[in-house]
Nucleic acid binder design. Structure first.
Lengths: 136, 136
DNA sequence: TAAATGACGAGTAAATTGGTCTGAATTTAG
DNA sequence: CTAAATTCAGACCAATTTACTCGTCATTTA
């Protein structure tokens, strides 16, 4: 797993939604404002919607809005939606089985790093990001 | 940046060296023990050497050993050597310039995540890993 | 001098990334 | 009812990256 442009774009887009609660925002608006390719953003929004983070309304005047208050959506939700389960290292990917059974000390180490990473993602909500309360 | 198989292999290999201080370990030994492809491991060891983490002796009976005590080599040294600078998100890559100048709130957020990630890598040394003192 | 090692550089197949394109389906305005 | 604006869905694709391999050379020791 890695944080790709897709997630980068996705976070920008969903943050944009967070700044306009109760208003449907169309893809065109977001892509123009943030310089994200139109059709790529379309895909991203679809994935965010399928993950239940945002909801869409069709037709003229339609667009997307958050499914939950900004304080309830954390960075890890976005990452999970767009990147899948966080596995910094291949051997942590739940869909694979590590072949090395005998006390693999390094995988233990990576697991710790992985958990810390997930925790730091879980800590930050969209609300935090917008409020720029974010400090180190 | 992402933690690839290369770094995974690299950490296993250098940990192996750490368990045998003052002894030259050949690639063949490591690759066999850990199931790492021979010629790939060769490349990895070269990069670790070029980064100054390990040193090599040629010829019969030769091999690799740590350049520094295990307690002085941290996970981030290994990651830096094999993956380059840690930039979880493209826009944090020092070799690129972010095109969005005007207060990009999300890049600020990613920077925080990135720093925390680096810190958790810097915290763990090879000694810790081997001692399995590693806890959450 | 032969064998055992590492050093170096080029090359490559497969997977992933970062998209595009086409054609729907749905909603609203007129 | 029709046209425009929007999302939905899937196939497709070029460029890049990953995870290697191969061949040749250099160095050290027996």
């Amino acid at each position: 797993m890695q944080i790709t442009r897709k997630t980068d774009y996705g976070l920008r887009a969903i943050s944009e939604l967070a700044t306009h609660p109760d208003e449907a925002i169309a893809i065109a608006q977001i892509s123009e404002k943030h310089g994200i390719p139109d059709s790529f953003l379309e895909k991203i929004m679809q994935e965010l919607r399928q993950a239940g983070l945002i909801e869409a309304t069709h037709g003229r005047g339609g667009g997307y809005r958050l499914s939950h208050p900004a304080g309830k959506i954390s960075l890890i939700d976005v990452v999970h939606a767009l990147e899948g389960p966080v596995a910094l290292v291949v051997c942590l990917d739940p869909s694979l089985k590590c072949k090395i059974e005998d006390g693999c000390t390094t995988s233990n180490t990576w697991a710790i790093i992985n958990e810390k990473f997930e925790a730091s993602l879980a800590e930050l909500t969209l609300e935090d990001i917008l409020a720029e309360e974010v400090r180190i």
